[in-house]
Every structure is written in C-alpha cells, then in structure tokens.
Computed example of a mutant assay.
Amino acid sequence: MKQANRTTAPVNDVEKESLHLWMVLSRAYQSVVSLINADIQSYGLNPTELGVLDFLYHSDEPQPLQKIGQKVLISSGNITYVVDKLEKKNLLARRSCDNDRRVIFAELTEQGNSFFEGIFDQHKQAIVEAMAGLTQEEKLVVIPLLKKLGFAAADKTV
C-alpha cells in the first residue's frame, strides 16, 4: 500500500507558537467549561438556560425574545425552545406586547426569581474555583491579553 505524501512547509516560530497557543487555550477552555457546566447541570439547567435566567434576572423589565437571543448568542429558533423549557419549569413567563403582536416578552416568575437567587452565589463560587489556577495578579494580566486576542480575531471575521 502506497503512503500518502505528507510533506508540509516547515513551521516557523510564529506558526509554532500560534499553534501551541491554540492548543493550550483550547484545552484550558475545555477544562474550565467542563467544571462550570457540571455546576450548571447540578441545578437541572443547561448553560443556555442559565444564561437566559441570568439576563432576565439582571434586566429591569421583561425582555423581547429576540433581544434575549442576541444577548445569550442563540438563534431565534433556539430561543423559543429554551423559553419553552424554562416556562415548563415555571421559571419564566411569556407575555405579548400590547403594541405589536409579533413581539413576545419573557420575564422571570416569582419562582424563577427565587430559584436564580438561590443558585447564583453557589454558581459564582464554582466559577471562582474554576479560575483558581491563576493568582489575582495573573488574572489581571491575562484578561486584557485575551480581550486583545478576541477583538483581533473578531476584526478578521467581519
């Protein structure tokens, strides 16, 4: 059996460090997300559901489903599914807009508000523990660097 020719151009230092950074960043992200998702799942939620509850909890008024989807970074079809699930759990309620029948608002129920207040401190602590691999000083160094990396990548995708 003939082997495929797998010759590639030599990797220079910029390419090598970029590839290494990608691997390290990916593995760190997966490890942190795994810890945080386990915490979220312990409340009977998925990360998107928690994101919706968090957004509504910190909003001063009911929010249109479209805006919730934009803030939580999910599609219009998915926001309907997530809201359905949260509504079945009696954590949020829908209501129609008085001025435009096409617009549907969502707001936390009393049960949803109490539920979120009951889990938020524990969830916040899970995030703190997931980030405990860095000192406070290291966090202050890495945050602006990751922002810079993210903004530069976002500029290339536009």
Score class of each variant (00 low, 15 high):
Q3T: 14
Q3P: 09
A4T: 05
R6N: 11
T7D: 14
T8R: 05
T8K: 14
T8D: 06
A9S: 13
P10E: 13
V11M: 15
N12S: 04
N12C: 12
N12Y: 04
V14R: 10
E15R: 06
E15G: 10
K16N: 03
K16L: 15
E17L: 08
S18V: 12
L19F: 13
L19N: 07
W22M: 15
M23W: 03
V24F: 06
V24S: 08
S26I: 01
A28W: 04
A28F: 09
Q30V: 08
V33E: 14
V33K: 11
V33I: 10
L35H: 10
I36K: 03
I36R: 06
A38S: 14
I40V: 13
I40E: 05
Q41A: 14
Q41H: 12
N46G: 15
E49V: 02
E49M: 11
L50H: 04
V52Q: 09
L53I: 08
L56S: 12
S59Y: 08
D60K: 11
P62N: 10
P62H: 09
Q63H: 01
P64W: 03
L65Q: 12
Q66W: 04
K71P: 10
K71M: 12
V72F: 09
V72W: 03
L73G: 02
I74M: 07
S75R: 03
S76E: 03
G77D: 04
G77Q: 05
T80M: 11
V82K: 15
V82E: 03
D84A: 11
K85D: 06
K85E: 07
L86C: 04
E87A: 14
K89I: 00
K89V: 02
N90A: 04
N90K: 10
N90I: 00
R94L: 15
C97V: 00
D98R: 14
D98A: 10
R101G: 00
R102E: 06
V103M: 09
V103Q: 09
I104V: 15
I104M: 11
F105V: 02
F105E: 01
F105Q: 02
F105W: 03
T109L: 06
E110G: 10
G112A: 04
F115D: 09
F116M: 05
F116C: 01
G118R: 09
F120T: 07
D121F: 03
K124D: 05
K124V: 08
K124G: 03
Q125R: 15
I127E: 01
V128Q: 13
E129R: 15
E129Y: 07
A130E: 03
M131E: 11
L134S: 07
L134D: 08
Q136H: 08
E138C: 06
K139D: 01
K139G: 02
L140M: 12
L140P: 01
L140V: 13
V141P: 00
V142K: 01
I143Q: 11
I143D: 00
L145G: 01
L146T: 02
L146M: 08
L149V: 09
L149H: 07
A152R: 05
A153Q: 14
A153S: 09
D155A: 15
K156H: 05
T157K: 07
T157D: 10
T157V: 04
